[in-house]
Design a protein around this nucleic acid. Structure first.
Lengths: 341, 341
DNA sequence: CTGAAAGCGCTTACAG
DNA sequence: CTGAAAGCGCTTACAG
């Protein structure tokens, strides 16, 4: 596949381009980096040679010289199967890649093993492989950020647990307020025994949504309801719903912390002969494809996952450029009413 | 987060480790690369300093010096949403990452825009960012491999279209034989008007499965059936099923080239008041989570996606090491009988 | 077993 | 606007 019969085993270097164009390496470098101070003639000849030789700068050499990789690590401390099965990730990644499109940065996905400090991911980050990192689905205890320099720009998708990341930059929604809004819907339609299927207790998206559910009940003067934790997956939602029904068969409403878990919960309810929303009303969280893929269209709290992805890149880019930016970026949510509540 | 109060703005270099350990850079390099020719004393002292300083080799420098990146590009020429929604990708990526685990290579995902020759992906590959590439879901016309040196190791998940990659290395199943087996099931249970929902015509997984379906009908002395193409997504399966029913309401069997499309087809059939498999029997392809997620459990042709991922890495590793390996690696399939046929 | 030296392919002040 | 030179942080023969 060599161009025009130029038979070299190695790809062309800047040096060779310079020689062929009759200019110095400096000048070729200026052309490649679109520096303005190049004469029209030099520009034309260098451009032509680059085209003819199919020259592409060697990124390792470039990184070494200017201390920039033009690569961003996307760190997701989840199992491969979870990462691929939750539309939430698809949307947020889509938002990030879409926003990055005009830039010359590349995104390198790192599916991290949680709780392993000396993991590949940690070494990857510390080995100068990326100029910054985006961390999504961060759990308390995740140690892959250990030993990073304070100046290494990291932006979180979802507020990290406070203790570990005091000055973190992040993009999130107001999970507590959003969950309160979702739970309020159940109250508004007359439900009186309202349980919750919560997210993991080691993530704010788990704990904060539980807080919101509790607040809604409290504000309505209702007694505390039952709570069971899941891990945001369909299977965990089903498991949690079974446990809730076993503990209290009279439940008439459930606020579920993700649409994926909600679909699992709905399936179990129907299996057990309960109608949705007749016997039990369900409010989910996310408003992604999972909300409308099941047999019952979900009433759910909508969060702008794709926009969150775009905002994450915006914040990271600001940090890479050394620009000022707020630590917390909170996007808004809304209630989407469909069939389940 | 600097270790033990060592306050340097930059990460420690090999040079600093050498100075602190009282040895030369060469010796530190030997320790880092586990070369055997190092005295126990030197080994101990260098190891201790590395630990104390939290030294991690700079990958750009290393790459530049030894012409290896220890990175592999995973190229997937699909939209983000398609990549995330098809369990096939999840399984194959899982297989690859699982097999790579013991190695010190990292996997960099590149969601490529198909048909754009000068894309980021092409530049990425040509810029020396990876030692090899894995290409999954390759379409005819994909141009991101243009201009790569012949020696650059590439392994395809699924045989590429012949014209473009004459000597390609790939891991696949015998799609034609597998599809014939799936279609035969429909014949065996007495179906006589058997259509197919095929994959894209620009991929062997599309064309070869169609060939297998046609062969089964031919071998049974049955007339040619109707064929409509989809893109492997649920929505395209639904669309295709509608078209088939419009063209021939008497269809009693459909061989569908992916489970995801099959779930879309089943949903449409039920909407139109047809029972599955009573009125119309369905055989899918893949045997992943999509096959058992819908209302009707799918009878399907099972291909070992995760094992294919593992085999892909095995083949690529052999090529990276310069070892001999076959060009084609064909794994076996089997028919899994559930409820839909 | 160990070290001095060259070199990987770029960028970046610095002169001119 | 342009070029010579130093330097980025490693690895790798080559001597010893």
């Amino acid at each position: 596949m060599t161009t025009e019969g130029e038979t070299s085993l190695l790809p062309p270097t800047l040096e060779e381009v310079a020689a062929a164009a009759g200019v110095s390496r400096s000048t070729v470098s200026r052309v490649v980096n679109r520096s303005t101070k190049v004469s029209p003639e030099a520009l034309a000849s260098v451009t032509a040679v680059i085209e003819r030789l199919g020259y592409v700068p060697n990124r390792a050499a470039r990184s070494l010289a200017n201390r920039q990789t033009k690569a961003i690590a996307l760190v997701v401390p989840e199992e491969t199967s979870r990462f691929f099965s939750d539309p939430y990730f698809a949307e947020i990644v889509h938002g990030i890649t879409h926003a990055m499109e005009p830039s010359d940065y590349v995104l390198n996905l790192q599916l991290a093993s949680p709780f392993v400090p000396t993991s590949k991911t940690n070494k990857y980050l510390r080995g100068g492989n990326a100029d910054g990192a985006i961390v999504i689905s961060h759990h308390a205890g995740d140690a892959f950020l250990a030993g990073l320099r304070d100046t290494f720009p990291v932006v979180f998708g979802g507020r990290p647990m406070n203790s570990q990341q005091p000055d973190a930059y992040y993009v999130d929604v107001d999970n507590a307020a959003a969950a309160q809004m979702g739970t309020q819907r159940l109250i508004d339609i007359g439900r009186r025994r309202i349980a919750t299927i919560a997210g993991p207790a080691d993530m704010p998206a788990g704990t904060d949504r539980t807080t919101g559910w509790r607040r809604a009940l409290g504000a309505a003067g209702m007694p505390e309801g039952l709570i069971v934790h899941g891990d945001f997956s369909v299977a965990s939602g089903a498991r949690a719903m079974r446990e809730l029904l076993d503990r209290d068969p009279e439940i008439d409403g459930v606020f579920v912390a993700s649409d994926l878990m909600a679909t699992g919960a709905v399936a179990v309810l129907r299996q057990r002969g309960k109608t949705v929303p007749g016997d039990v009303a369900i409010v989910g969280f996310d408003d992604n494809s999972a909300a409308v893929s099941g047999e019952v269209q979900l009433t759910t709290v909508s969060q702008p996952s794709m926009e969150m992805g775009e905002k994450i890149w915006e914040v990271l880019l600001a940090r890479l450029r050394g620009e000022e930016t707020a630590h917390a970026h909170i996007l808004s949510t809304r209630l989407v009413i469909r069939a389940s509540a």
